[in-house]
Structures are given as structure tokens and as C-alpha cells.
Design a protein around this nucleic acid. Sequence first.
DNA 1: GCAAGGTGCCAATGCGGATTATTAGCGGCT
DNA 2: AGCCGCTAATAATCCGCATTGGCACCTTGC
Lengths: 347, 347
Amino acid sequence: MVVVRQIDVARVAGVSQTTVSMVLNERTGGSARISEDTRERVLSAIKKTGYVANPIAQSLAGHRTGMFGVFAFEPMFTAEAGGFYTEFLGGIEAAGEAARKDLLLFTSTVLDEPDNHIYRRNENRLRLTDGAILLGNGEPKMELARLHEDGFPFVYIGRREIPNGEISYVSADYAAATADLVERLVAVGHERLCYVGTGADASASIDRRRAFVDTLRDAGLPVDRPVPAGHGDYAAVRQAVEAGATALLVEPPVGIDELTAVIERAGYRVPADVSVALLGDVHGHSVRPDDWSGYRLPRWEMGMQAVKLLVRLMEDPGGPARRVVVPCLPHDGCTVAPAPRPGRDRR
Amino acid sequence: MVVVRQIDVARVAGVSQTTVSMVLNERTGGSARISEDTRERVLSAIKKTGYVANPIAQSLAGHRTGMFGVFAFEPMFTAEAGGFYTEFLGGIEAAGEAARKDLLLFTSTVLDEPDNHIYRRNENRLRLTDGAILLGNGEPKMELARLHEDGFPFVYIGRREIPNGEISYVSADYAAATADLVERLVAVGHERLCYVGTGADASASIDRRRAFVDTLRDAGLPVDRPVPAGHGDYAAVRQAVEAGATALLVEPPVGIDELTAVIERAGYRVPADVSVALLGDVHGHSVRPDDWSGYRLPRWEMGMQAVKLLVRLMEDPGGPARRVVVPCLPHDGCTVAPAPRPGRDRR
DNA sequence: GCAAGGTGCCAATGCGGATTATTAGCGGCT
DNA sequence: AGCCGCTAATAATCCGCATTGGCACCTTGC
């Protein structure tokens, strides 16, 4: 691996290393004056020697690397993830390109230190970059808190909170999307809607449930309690349907396909008897991609916005946390239909 | 952004920066001796100050970055690419993780310098990494040649040749897969096979055509000339079918869906009258993913092997170019069937 | 009592480039 | 002649860390 340094160029051109650096950086202010004659000698020496800069040395001296980190707390390209992350990456890639930044993708699985993804063995792997986009589930809160304390600029894709501080994130507007979905179902005649969830207390779940309850209440309709489901157990869902629910709003990661199968096995048709809508994307499950109705995450847009946010964050270091909320995308598949006429036998 | 350096740790522990570095690196050989007492003082100072290493400085001093570059000569995460690259990345990610390397993903589109992807403005962007995996179409031969001259370790995913030298690559065994496919078609009764291609002189195309011709000849069957197709023009294909061809072997990037549509519009049924097989993957086209028969690229495996190759390359700098050939994956969809019985009206 | 051989630590140096402070040279002006 | 002002280029530093060579301070052994 042949390396040509500035000092080598300088020797060829008969000048000092400083002069070479100055020609390359075209500094105009200060006392950086290079005569046209010298500049040309240096440039020709660069061409002759085939000099290329060492980005590592530049970074050390210049305090910037020109890279964004992308850190997922789970592997991104596995078959299970099934392209879930690539849309985020598409937005990140596009915005990163506009910002002229390369993407440093960190591998996430940790072989020997299960709770240290970013910090391990006295290293902060992200420090190699000017700032980072974080995504994925299972993030250790401690690491986020430490990153924030260190003053490292980062943006999470997805809403995240930490104990002592505020972090920047891009989130999807689950509340608005859920409210909208409920309204659309009500508009086509549904009166008994049922919320099927995992009972998780993640902020996204809370938003969705609240929007569900509020919207139903505003419409003057009865609000049933959320029904738990998952892990192959859909008994409660079946009961709800038998009790008269005509529309199910299903929260990921509950699989809509399994749920549909259970309902149909119980003798109901989807969507003729029961409409099923999905509140967001699932990944890691085998879901027929476009068949279901509901709404999906604007993943590309979220990636895009995250980078834009990061750029703004870096322009104003020490500034406050910033948040961007992106609308979800309504999606019409074939699992939602108008409510069955009342009185008609649903079996 | 608060930074703690080794010198700060040293001051707290009452030792020199050298000692801190030595404690961290646990060098045993030479004159690197640290007493247990001192080591503990340093370690506690590290903990107290919250020191984390600066990877850039480590790289500059240590000559390694611990990163692999991944350079695609076209955007990887666009809707058009449609997940084509993610399988490669999956293999790369998995193997990179095993090698404890992070992935530096370079953005490829060049705004102002169309022919300089890797080298631009006196920089070699890849130099930030210890080695790189290259993939994608449209690579400028000059850059590959220069990279090779510079002695930078890299592996191409896909067979590539340069004028003055040999580069390392991982390629798919198109020849064997094509021969196998022809044999399978012959085994189910096909006697008039037709090769549909773009007429490109890429090495992969040459391999496929040769395997097609050789295998047919070995089977004692007539070898028709390859039929050109593409850009919406399938007249020649239609003629071939009307002249009696019962099986079409289609070379990407010709779209199998369009082709099938044209044949069916001409009154033939696929696969009852005409079998259609695809010789590899298409991307950037709207092809129903799993319906077609033929063979596909072992993309995950190729990514995996590329990283392994790169690791070996780096262990033996100055060694010869290395190549790995990976078998393709036969794929059974619904576009291939036994040959129609002769004499039967195919219309 | 003193050379030989360990031990434990540190000053100095280098990695390659950016930035600063400084010097050298030159002409004009008093 | 002496001073000023300006330009062109260089020497000296620094970025944070790893590594080399060497210096004190012990032990041993005779």
C-alpha cells in the first residue's frame, strides 16, 4: 500500500508541507497567501505523485469526519427483518447524500457484552462519526442517557424518553392516524370497535389507545376495554367478536394474519362480518404485505427527517432537543369493509 | 461535547499518559510493565473520569480503523432497487459481525463529478477503511484499476476484470446453473430451447450463452441462435415460439413478466405451451417475486463470502487476487412445465 | 561493595494534516 | 538610513494515542 503524504508532495514541489496543505484547502482568510506560480507547482506535484489525502489524519486535525452513524439495536438485514429497515435507510441515504455525508453502519449484535452496544471496552463506537441516527427496539436506556450526557448529537427514529433529559427523535403520529382510522370505520357504519393490543406501556401504545378511546367517545359510541392478544392466544378476541364487535383495531406486533385466521376459523368472514385494521407496521412476522388495511409508518420520510434533524442539531450544539412528528400513511387493503347490517345473521 | 483524554486520566491517577495507554492496551511484550497497584489506580481514574477512547486518534496511531467499506456504484435503498441489495448486505453484515468490523456505507451518487466515485478531489474515500466490498453496476474501470494499483484491499461482488491486473471477486456460477437448467428442461421433454438475451458482452452473459450452447449440443439437440429482446420489443421472441420453441431461457435484465404477457397475448399459454425460465435475478423491474422458474443469485452467500475473502486478503497483503465462485440457487416457480406433446395443437 | 540483571515508569517521538505565529523579502515613504 | 506595510512562505504546534528507548530504582550474586 503505497502512501504519498503532503510532505512528499512538498519535497517534489520544493515547498513546505504547510504550503501544500494551504493549496489544498484554499484558505482565503488570515495570512494564507499563495502565489499563482507556487500553487501551480504544488498542483502539478500532486498530480505527479498521485497524492490522496488521509481522511483519518484530516479528521484528527480537523475535528470532523464527514460521516453519520447509523446504529440499529438489532441486525438490519436479516430475513426476519424482511426489509423493514431498508425504507428507513432509503430516506437516510437520500438525505445523507444531500448533506454529503457517508453512512457508518454499526453492527449491533454483541457477542460478549450484552448490555453494551454503543459503549464497550472504554470505547464509544459512535465517536467516529459527527452524529448518529439510532433506531430499532431493545435499546438500553442507560446508553442513551450517557450518549446524551456526553453531548453527542443523535436522533432516534421512534419516540424515546430517558430519565434525566430530553432526546431528539422523529416519531410517527400514531394518535392522529388512529383517530382517523376510527373515524373512517365509524363512517362506514361500525359501532362496536374493539382494540386488540399487547397491553404494552410503550408510548406508542398509550397514544393509540388514548386516541381510540377519545375518538369513540366523541362519536358517542360505547368504549369497550382493550382486548389482549398475542403468543397464539386469541380467545379474548374471539369472545369480543361473538359479543358483537364488528371492527378490530390490531396493534403490532400482534400478527394480523394469525388473528384473521382465528376469526375465520370461528365462522366469521373477514371483512364481510368483521373488519380488521392494523395500527402500524409489523416486522419480523409473516404478514401478507399489502393485503391488510389500516395505516403504515412513513418509514422513508422518517429516515429523511431524522437526518435533517441531525444536521440542524449539529449546527446548533448545546441547543435543545428537537422533535419531528410525521403523519402515518393510511392504507387500504382488503380487510376492512362497511359494517354488516344489524340483525343479519353473522354466522 | 465533553472530552476526556488519556492525559486527563493520567493526571487524575498521578501517572503519565504513556502509562494510561499501556494499561488500556495490556501490552505484555517489550518493556511494558505496570504494577498491579498502578494499574488499579489508572482503572479507577478511567471509571471516575468516564474516559472513552477517540477512535480517530487510535486509527492514526495504530494504522487500522476496524471498519470495512461497502461501496455500491448506485443507490442501494431506493424503491427501484427494491431490496435487491439488502440480501448482499445481510451476508456482509453477518460476516462483518463475526470479524468484529463495522460497515462504512458510502453514498454513491455523485453530484458534481460523474466519473469519480471513489476518488474525488484528491481524496480516496475508501481509505478510511481497512478494506472494502464493492458492488453494483456502472463501476468506472479506471477507479478499480487505480484502487488495485494503490494496493488497497477490496473484493467485488460480481465478476469484474481490469486491464492491467487481476482483482478479487465473488461471482455466481452462471455456467453451471444454466447447464443444469437446460438439462432439467430437456429431461421433461423440451427439444427446442430458445435463449432470449440482450446481446450484452458482459462476462456473465458470455458464460450463460456458452453453457446453453454446450449443454444442448451435448444432448444432441439443435442450437438456435440467441434471440434479442428488451425495451418492449419481443417480436423476435414471438417468431421463435411460432417456429416451434417450447422453452425460453431469459437473461436479465429482460423482464420475464413482460415477456410472458406478450406470449400469452399471442395465444400461447405459459407454461402449458411454452415454458419460461429466468437466468438469474432481475432488479429494478416489476417482476412477481416468486412466480418465475429458473435460478437465482445466492446473494446472501455472496456477501458472506466476499467478507471472508476480504479478511483473507488483508491477512496476506501483496498476495495474489482471489476468487470465489458460489453456486446459484435453482428456483421452481410456475412458469416451467413439461414440453407439450408433439403434434398437439399449441394454439 | 559493586557489577549484572530486573522492574516500573516516563519523556520523546511519530502518525498525517490543519492552523498559528513568525520570518524573510521588498518597495515606498519620510 | 530607518521605519512601515504588505506579501509569500515557513517553522512550530497541536489533534489524541501508541510505541520506542532509556532512566532510575531495586534485587541478586560474588
